[in-house]
Amino acid sequence: MTDTDDRALITLSGIEKVFLTDELETHALSDVHLVIERGDYVAIEGPSGSGKTTLLSILGLLDAPSRGRHVMGGREVQGLDARERARIRNRDIGFIFQTFNLIGDLTVAENVELPLRYRDVPAAERRRRVDSALERVQMAHRKGHMPSQLSGGQQQRVAVARAVAGDPAILFADEPTGALDSKTGDAVMDLIGELHARGTTVCMVTHSREYARRAHRAIHLFDGRVVEDVARSVAA
């Protein structure tokens, strides 16, 4: 696969991430090569400290690699400044976080609307997209509520709606069920599965073997290196 391959959404080549703390140098990622194609459903697995979160940070342009090449949508992004990275995050990437990260002082609708506001989407269009996204996660009836009035599962559904409202090219999920009970976690994973079925590219970090099995491809990390990258048949 090449950078110009239409199917390649993200390409990492020789990515390294080094953290410097006082005199200590920690290699969080070493020589990572990875291609995520459009329509992929990828699970990133690995034990604690293996570099999963760091890899997700770099994939999602939340952080920049120390070395290596990072191409997204055919464009090299590893050298972009913070402002441009923020712009790409806003337009092309959706995030679902373990602890939801809804803003407590905004309503459900306002939380979903937030990335659209940062994109300066006109108000009418924002309203339409918010309503549509909330419909998709079946939370339209709670749009005027505050996050504190919702259960954990409901909050994560709202977070999913926020992630997809901007129609991103890829959805990154960081332990999306980590703060939920199993039943609610199942429901959220079902929702992510539905989004993928409708064409959304999904890249998820998880500790859960069960949920990892729902992905079509598993990338296993150990000590900051990709030690396994396998396509798998999807569990029913």
Binding site: A82, N90, F95, N101, L102, P115
Partner: peptide
């Protein structure tokens, strides 16, 4: 946390 979330969602500094 809120600021980090806003930044992750695309807000520039």
């Amino acid at each position: 946390g809120e600021m980090a979330a806003r930044a992750a969602l695309g807000a520039t500094r």
